Structure formats: structure tokens, C-alpha cells
Computed example of a mutant assay.
Amino acid sequence: MKWNLRWVAARRDIWRPTDLLAAFREVGFTPSLSKVAALWGATPVTIRLDDLDRICQALQCTVADLLEAEPVAGQQGEQDGTRAAAAGETLAGAPERPRPVPRTEGPRRRRPPN
């Protein structure tokens, strides 16, 4: 996902995290300045849906303006490889996965005490 908070804020003539915090407070959203700076500086790993709703309300935008889906590099090949491995097939050039060897010699393992 691409996080477009700075672009959306720029459309409202907001250029600094402190200005963004003031816009949030106008709609009753009061995060800390450090949280606003983290949202401003990087793509958040997680975000609460009610916070996302308040951000949209403060910036007069939609979730689609803030979040933009983008393809993940190499995702198609990984999906095909996962399907082949799940089906028990080996990929060309990939080493075969080790298989457990049934135990035929020696004493049987005892169960651990309860």
C-alpha cells in the first residue's frame, strides 16, 4: 500500500506535522505530536480504522485518497511457487525438501511424564 498523507495534506495547504495536528484538533481528534510525526514521516504498519476515519474527516478526503494499492514486486512468482510446493511438486532448480525418515531401529521413545 502507498501512504499518501503528505500529498493529501498538501492539497489543504498543510506542510508540517504541527499544522496537521491543528487540523486534527479542529475535528476533535487529539493524537500526540509524536504519533502525527510518525504518520507524516513514514507509512504506518498498522492504523486503527477510527483514526483513519478521523484523519479523512480532518483532511476532507476519502480512504482511497490516503491509501493507494500498488503491486508487490515478485508477488506472482511467489504465489505460483507456493501453489507448486503445496501440491508436492518441486520447482526447477530448487532443492528438494528433506523428508522425515521412519525410525526402524533402536528402542522406542517413552512418553514424557505428566
Rank of each mutant, 00 (worst) to 15 (best):
A69G: 04
G74K: 10
Q76W: 12
A58C: 03
L52P: 07
L21H: 00
K35I: 03
L20P: 04
A92I: 04
L91N: 12
T43V: 10
A42R: 15
D51K: 08
C56D: 03
A37N: 05
L52Y: 07
P95H: 06
Q79N: 09
A69L: 10
P100V: 06
Q76E: 15
A58L: 00
V27Q: 00
A85G: 09
L66C: 02
D50C: 09
V63H: 00
P44W: 14
C56P: 05
L67T: 02
A37D: 11
L39N: 11
A85V: 13
V27I: 02
A85Q: 14
E78C: 08
C61D: 02
D50S: 15
A22F: 07
P71N: 06
V45L: 13
Q60A: 05
A58F: 00
R83T: 07
P98D: 09
E26V: 04
A94E: 15
L20A: 03
F24V: 01
P95W: 05
A84L: 12
I55C: 04
G81R: 15
R54I: 01
I55D: 03
A92L: 10
R83N: 10
T90F: 10
P31M: 01
E78Q: 12
I55N: 08
R97L: 13
F29W: 02
K35C: 03
T30D: 04
A38T: 04
T90Y: 08
V101I: 10
P31E: 02
E70T: 13
A69P: 08
L33I: 09
A94P: 05
Q60S: 07
E70L: 12
L33P: 06
L49F: 10
A69N: 08
D50N: 12
F24N: 01
A37P: 03
Q79I: 14
C56R: 09
I47P: 08
V45E: 14
L39C: 06
Q76F: 13
Q57L: 04
D50Y: 12
Q75C: 10
E89P: 05
A92V: 04
P31R: 00
D51R: 07
F24T: 01
L52M: 11
D53N: 07
L21V: 00
L52E: 15
I55V: 04
P17M: 04
C61G: 03
R54M: 04
A37R: 15
D19Y: 02
A86P: 06
S32V: 03
T62A: 02
A64Y: 03
I47H: 09
L33V: 05
T62E: 09
G74W: 10
A86W: 11
D19F: 02
G77M: 14
G81M: 15
T18S: 05
L49M: 12
R83H: 10
R99C: 07
G88H: 12
D53C: 05
A69I: 13
T62P: 02
S32I: 02
A22T: 14
A84N: 11
L66Y: 02
D65T: 05
A73E: 13
W40N: 09
T82H: 12
C61P: 03
V101N: 05
R97A: 15
V63Q: 04
R25C: 00
T43W: 07
L33S: 14
P98R: 11
